[in-house]
């Protein structure tokens, strides 16, 4: 019994790392820009397809492909911000939401058109036999994915907490008008925020694409889950999103392990309903956020 629980704990942690990446990207965009970003799941799919294209079609090195796919996600995010969001800076939230839903549809259908409906596999340099440590076993690829996700989370936190641009981003998050009085180019911060948030989504996709399979609709469920994570942690709350990511990972793993694998994805949403009913501000109080 204990061994099984330990195994679920490990699986949940590994899954939670990538969920945290997804959630932080989305909550950052909401916090700084007040944009409900429906393209987030599609950027996740984009990252996965880019890794597939770079590794399988161009024959590039796997690790290099992960880096490039993430950077391409950053570039696509910057493009979406500059072309779609910048002109809508002062528009009401409804118009922005509609535009973002449209953008998500365009991205998904483009993927379908370019890559076809058949799911793709991404070859990796990792062996398929699990590493066994005592009662717990884990695939080397999954361990690698977790390590990279944690490294990205730490790097992102350092960027926000320790650099000039990070401080300017947090200031903009808290009070855009006063930030502009300090000389912050708020428009530039918005572009950077959206690009970085999109890059995190693409990185999550690039990491998980090889773990599962790559398909045009893979962004749908992940987009929903990203919203779940953000709501769990409290909208615009960065540590909350990290905690929400791990919470979702554990709930899914333990739910699938002890209750039903069929309803794996449903457990997360059940958790949101519970959290919204009992603690609608999210798991972490807003004043504890670092933003």
């Amino acid at each position: 019994m204990m061994d099984q629980a330990l195994q679920h704990l490990v699986n949940g942690t590994v899954l939670g790392g990538t969920y945290a990446l997804l959630g932080i990207g989305l909550t950052l965009i909401f916090g700084v820009m007040r944009v409900v970003n429906f393209t987030h799941g599609e950027l996740y799919a984009f990252g996965a397809y880019m890794v597939y294209a770079l590794v399988s079609l161009l024959g590039l090195n796997f690790y290099l492909s992960l880096v490039l796919a993430t950077l391409l996600g950053v570039a696509l995010g910057a493009l979406v911000e500059l072309v779609l969001l910048r002109p809508l800076r002062h528009a009401d939230i409804d118009s922005v939401m509609l535009v973002m839903i449209g953008a998500a549809l365009v991205l998904q259908n483009t993927e379908m058109w370019v890559w076809g409906g058949v799911a793709k596999m991404v070859p990796t340099p990792f062996v398929g036999t699990p590493l066994v440590v005592g009662p717990v076993s884990v695939l080397p690829l999954r361990l690698f994915v977790f390590a990279v996700a944690v490294a990205l989370l730490v790097g992102f936190w350092l960027l926000l907490d320790r650099t000039r641009i990070g401080t300017a981003m947090r200031a903009t998050f808290q009070d855009p008008q006063t930030a502009s009085l300090m000389g912050v180019r708020v428009g530039l911060v918005h572009t950077m925020t959206f690009a970085l948030g999109s890059g995190l989504a693409a990185a999550a996709g690039a990491l998980l694409g090889p773990v599962f399979v790559v398909s045009p609709t893979m962004g749908d469920l992940v987009g929903l889950k990203a919203f779940a994570i953000v709501i769990l942690g409290g909208l615009g709350n960065l540590p909350g999103a990290a905690i929400g990511g791990f919470a979702l990972g554990y709930v899914e793993e333990f739910g699938a392990g002890y209750l039903s694998t069929e309803y794996r994805d449903a457990f997360g949403f059940l958790l949101i309903i519970l959290v919204l009913a009992i603690r609608p501000q999210g798991l972490v109080a807003a004043r504890e956020r670092i933003g």
């Binding site: 000039r164 401080t167 300017a168 947090r170 200031a171 808290q174 009070d175 006063t178 930030a179 300090m182 000389g183 912050v184 004043r287 956020r289 670092i290 933003g291």
Partner: peptide, 15 residues
Amino acid sequence: FPHLTVRENLEMGAL
């Protein structure tokens, strides 16, 4: 900036 430290607020002034 309420969630920035006092030092960070001062540094923002010198951005």
